[in-house]
């Protein structure tokens, strides 16, 4: 049996739809909790409505690579698998690596390669699922303990928490940014271009009349960066 007949079977579509519906409902319920708590803490309703609008604007561009990875994986794994994997955990390089390892373990040449049959497909599924779901299990087991520790810090010294938060944020942003500086000339120039552009927005956004700019800082810098990448690649081609 051709593995793609299994991979695109209606049963898998149904399970994928169930998982994704569950995630959707969970997300809505979490948002409702956050919403109520924000109101209870005295934040105006208008701020929360604006947060939804800003978040939609910010999320569209960074979601495109996820959609593209679905396109890359569909010819190899059918529709339901990339749909569920990239909706619930979603990182194409990881999913491909895990699927490839699974396929090779049962004797296929690799993901979609010679000998990639039903069993290899199942092995790929198991590897992707274990790798992607384990972090969730760890989160369920550890998040409460870790967060409680941070809340104790806050109870002891409320001023320290925002400083610690800034340090954690800078560690993440700086490390990932530097990594992209090392991914070739075009990527490096793209990082620098959108860095400078975002910096300019931050500076001009200090003016009262231009404060609205700050709401679009990230979306604008991504668009400018993407346009710059097109320009640089035509220059270096």
């Amino acid at each position: 049996m051709d593995y793609l007949l299994i991979a695109n079977n209606i049963t898998l579509f149904i399970i994928a739809a169930v998982i994704i519906s569950f995630v959707f409902i969970q997300t809505i319920l979490f948002m409702r909790k956050g919403w109520k708590e924000a109101l209870r803490l005295g934040l105006p309703r208008e701020t929360l409505v604006n947060t939804i609008k800003t978040s939609i604007g910010i999320s569209i561009l960074p979601s495109i690579p996820i959609v593209i990875s679905v396109f890359v994986l569909v010819p190899l794994l059918g529709i339901p698998t990339p749909w569920v994997r990239l909706t619930v955990i979603g990182s194409a390089p990881f999913e491909m690596m895990a699927a490839d390892m699974g396929a090779q373990a049962v004797g296929a040449a690799g993901l979609g390669g010679i000998g990639f049959d039903g069993t290899a497909f199942a092995a790929a599924l198991w590897l992707m699922t274990i790798g992607g779901s384990l972090p969730l299990l760890l989160c369920v087991l550890l998040n409460r303990k870790i967060s409680t520790t941070y809340e104790k810090f806050r109870a002891r010294d409320a001023n320290w928490m925002p400083v610690l938060s800034g340090a954690a944020l800078m560690a993440l942003i700086a490390t990932l940014m530097v990594e992209y500086l090392d991914k070739g000339t075009i990527a490096a120039l793209t990082v620098l271009t959108s860095f400078l552009f975002a910096l300019l927005i931050s500076v001009f956004g200090q003016k009262e009349s231009l404060a609205w700019l700050k709401n679009f800082a990230l979306a604008f810098s991504i668009i400018i960066g993407m346009a710059a990448a097109l320009f640089y690649s035509s220059m270096f081609a």
């Binding site: 800078m170 990230l218 810098s221």
Partner: peptide, 27 residues
């Protein structure tokens, strides 16, 4: 392709430009 390939570098450049100005001592 170059535009789509570089969404993440653009995102991280943008994040760094937006935030490091506020947290430069910690960056």
């Amino acid at each position: 392709k170059p535009a789509f390939d570089n969404i993440m570098p653009a995102l991280y450049g943008g994040l760094a430009g937006t935030w490091m100005i506020y947290y430069w001592k910690q960056a």
